[in-house]
Design a protein around this nucleic acid. Structure first.
Length: 545
RNA sequence: GUUCCGGUAGCUCAGGGGACAGAGCAAUGGCCUUCUAAGCCAUCGGUCGGGGGUUCGAAUCCCUCCCGGAACGCCA
């Protein structure tokens, strides 16, 4: 799609070549916050000041003098310290309305990047319920996946199920203890066990299904399988309610069963990347920028979690993705170097794995921090959040914050369904537009959304909206490329703000049909983009509120 | 001690080399006989943790110190 930005970029590129015989590789075009600085602006003259050893103002004037004529640009000006500001022809700006109405939810869609990205997120151990931290990761991963898909990447969303390790054995023993307790047996929860309510629930279900069968029979295998299945089912339900989807649930156990873990170990050993010390096998991750070598086979012969994790990433890469993105909790940051090292060793490729770290969430209630204790089973769960606050508000809340901020979630504030909650501001803008269309139909006011041009649309409020509609494609591209989804809610808010302001100043359902139609076209375009942008962060756009 | 995050308005957070530092909430004053007041309009509010440096230009980059969170296992 030929955007105004692209056009401007080409114009500047050409001017630079003519005026200074300079080949510019990247020209930054921005939309100034201050209207008096034009519809678009570039700082290219200032960035070239060092290169040319010239005053940026002179460079800017030189560029402007050589700027080819264009029917897009109405006026250009140079402002200190060296900005070039573009004022765009109003008809060109307004044309975005017809583009949005034509493309609908394809508006803002990026060109096919022919790059297949696998995003792994949540990947919670099936040993309990999803908690607030998982919720943040889920919201982040899902939003990123939607944004990247929109931007033109091929995206696979993946959840790694740790169903094969020690923690699952501990889960089985915890279930067993709860099961025995149901028969008044003295069975303490193991030291490394899990105390959550959901474990008791699992024990009750097993009892109602099998009675006292496992008092005499060894139930470990059944406890394990039933526990994992039950907990995974719960997690999937919670994630679905949170509008978080996955394409693949990858099983650690399956990696073992298919011999991929052993194969990975063998491959690493063959390559001479391991050595034995104190009866354990170490991987030479220091060859790849890790601070020390890591144990992959313990002296008792069992594997550390690193080995299956490497096998898993090897497995993912062999499925043909161009890039892997892992979204991990902040408590795993020390793990990144060895994971990347392992991935490199086993594939011989560097930089295919990127890790985004999400920082901790503090939950505040009654002005105090709620301590999350997973062992005691008293963590705030995703289900609690959905029930108390609602998916829309929680998704919007998480989406608003950059991944690496440590954030406070004030439960009391989040639960209030008032204008204190910013998600409603955006949703209300959408509902308001729907309401206007309902009203027009109720009143039997005719309008035409297929007009070929605009004769009556004018005014600052109109162009605020139009400019924001125009900025949408570049927003998608930037958010996807930098993987910073929190730009989306910020944009939604700005767009909603312009809409509300427009609404206050302009009567949309004007008595003149031409005016009415043009305004409704504008609002329908805004509605589409709000709905689309909300969709990118998993928030619904209600027709009425 | 080392590593990774963070410290910006009363609170929660954007901005992460460029034009006067922004938003929400909170506070103050206006606006519902007109398309939804979950709204609009206006006002108030900041030594960008401290100190050095680099730059035409620093909240942004570098150094250093202080404060908060996290991680530094043959746990996951």
């Amino acid at each position: 799609m030929e955007t105004i930005e692209k056009t401007l970029r080409n114009l500047v590129k050409e001017a630079l070549a003519n005026a200074f015989d300079h080949e510019a590789d990247s020209i930054h075009i921005e939309t100034p916050a201050d209207k008096s600085h034009g519809d678009y602006a570039t700082n290219v003259a200032m960035t070239l000041a060092g290169v040319f050893r010239k005053n940026p103002l002179d460079i800017a004037r030189g560029i402007v003098a050589e700027l080819p004529a264009s029917d897009v640009v109405e006026r250009v000006e140079v402002k200190p310290p060296g900005f070039i500001n573009f004022f765009i022809d109003k008809h060109v700006l307004l044309d975005v309305i017809r583009t949005v109405l034509r493309d609908k939810h394809d508006y803002g869609k990026g060109e096919d990047k022919s790059e297949h990205v696998n995003i792994e997120y949540v990947s919670a151990n099936p040993t309990g319920s999803l908690h607030v931290g998982h919720a943040r990761g889920a919201a982040a991963g899902d939003s990123l996946a939607r944004i990247m898909k929109k931007a033109g990447y091929r995206v696979t969303r993946e959840f790694y199920v740790n169903d094969g390790g020690n923690q699952i054995a501990a889960l089985a023993r915890s279930i067993e203890a709860r099961y025995l307790q149901l028969f008044d047996e003295d069975a303490p929860i193991p030291a490394d066990g899990y105390h959550g309510e959901e474990i008791k629930e699992i024990a009750r279900r097993i009892k109602s299904e099998h009675g006292d069968r496992f008092l005499t029979e060894d139930g470990h295998e059944h406890f394990r399988k039933f526990g994992v299945d039950h907990l995974m089912k719960n997690m999937k339900e919670d994630l679905a309610a949170f509008r978080v989807d996955f394409d693949i649930f990858a099983s650690e156990l399956t990696l073992y069963e298919k011999g991929e873990v052993e194969a990975t170990l063998a491959k690493l050993e063959e390559q001479g990347l391991t050595y034995e010390k104190d009866g354990a096998v170490f991987l030479r991750t220091t060859l790849k920028d890790d601070e020390k070598d890591r144990v992959i086979v313990k002296s008792d012969g069992s594997y550390t979690y690193l080995l299956p994790d490497i096998a898993y990433h090897k497995n993912k890469l062999e499925r043909g993705y161009d890039k892997l993105v892992d979204i991990l909790g902040g408590d795993h940051h020390g793990y990144i170097p060895r994971l990347k090292a392992g991935g490199e060793m086993v594939t011989g490729k560097k930089g295919v794995l990127e890790v985004d770290i999400l920082q901790m969430v503090r939950v505040i209630q009654d002005g105090q921090e709620l301590k999350l204790s997973k062992r005691s089973g008293k963590a705030i769960t995703l289900r609690d959040l959905i029930d108390a606050v609602g998916t829309d508000a929680v998704r919007y809340f998480f989406a608003r914050h950059s991944l690496n901020t440590h954030m406070d979630l004030d439960l009391d504030l989040a639960m209030r369904q008032t204008n204190e909650n910013p998600v409603y501001y955006a949703q209300y803008a959408h509902a308001r537009i729907c309401s206007i269309f309902r009203k027009a139909k109720e009143e039997g006011l005719p309008f035409d959304l297929g007009l070929a041009d605009f004769k009556t649309l004018a005014g600052e409020k109109t162009f605020d909206l139009v400019e924001k509609l125009g900025a949408y494609p570049a927003l998608i591209e930037e958010a996807a490329q930098k993987r910073i989804f929190h730009k989306i809610p910020a944009y939604i808010h700005r767009l909603a703000q312009s809409l509300h302001s427009f609404y206050g100043a302009v009567t949309v359902l004007a008595s003149c049909e031409r005016e009415r139609s043009e305004r409704l076209m504008l609002l329908e375009a805004v509605r589409i983009v709000i709905e689309d942008a909300l969709g990118l962060i998993g928030v619904e756009a209600p027709d009425k509120m």
